[in-house]
Design a protein around this nucleic acid. Structure first.
Length: 193
DNA sequence: TGAGTGATTGACT
DNA sequence: GTCAATCACTCAT
């Protein structure tokens, strides 16, 4: 994390809700020996420790330990017996909060994404949290690592404030009224539900 | 020890 | 629109 640019570090450490909004437009980059695969962050959700819908709500366990790491830590969790989702940890160390990356707009390595997604093309490539993990081909073993290595966040597209939309979260049954989901207005890769 | 749920997706009616 | 897949975790026996 020492290599992370100061502006980004400040954003992440400022807390999950603020970071979820500010991360929109940044480029999520996965670097492997095969090359770079990347996309612009188009949709996020914030999860803080006092949130009943957060994995960190009941305190630290083996599964969610990464959420309690320093800002910039990678949190990858396994769910529904078959899918992985990617989070960027926010806040101070020991604070149990993170931003779920729900959708990206492909920017680099389109052919690799298609291959990783078994030939799927178009918006179905990356318009969901587990879909984008599969498209990038992210190794679940990277859970707990710091960003700036295999997974990094780079300056992306500049967004007008009016392009950012806040909404209720989706895919959860607790605390659904929280305005903790953010997305780029009009971006076709934003997941529905 | 077992039932129920889940930060999802894809196939099917 | 409904629902199965499939496992880690929580909570109630």
């Amino acid at each position: 994390m020492g290599s992370m640019n100061p502006e980004l570090h400040e954003i992440l450490e400022s807390g999950a809700v603020h970071a979820a909004r500010a991360l929109l437009g940044y480029k999520l980059v996965y670097t492997t020996e095969m090359g770079r695969i990347a996309g612009y962050i188009a949709e996020t959700e914030a999860y803080i420790q006092k949130d009943p819908a957060s994995h960190s709500f009941r305190g630290e366990t083996l599964r969610n330990a990464s959420m309690f790491g320093p800002a910039g830590t990678i949190y990858i969790y396994f769910t529904y017996g078959m899918h992985y989702c990617l989070n960027i940890v926010t806040g101070k160390k020991e604070h149990g909060e993170a931003v779920l990356i729900r959708a990206i707009e492909p920017a680099e390595g389109l052919d690799s994404m298609k291959a990783n997604r078994n030939g799927i093309n178009g918006i179905e490539l990356t318009n969901g949290p587990a879909k984008l993990v599969e498209a990038l081909g992210i190794d679940p073993g990277l859970n707990g690592q710091a960003t700036g290595k295999e997974i990094s966040i780079e300056q992306g597209m500049q967004l007008e404030e009016s392009m950012i939309y806040a909404a209720k979260r989706i895919g959860i049954s607790k605390a659904t009224e929280e305005l903790a989901r953010f997305y780029i207005r009009g971006n076709p890769y934003v997941s529905r539900s």
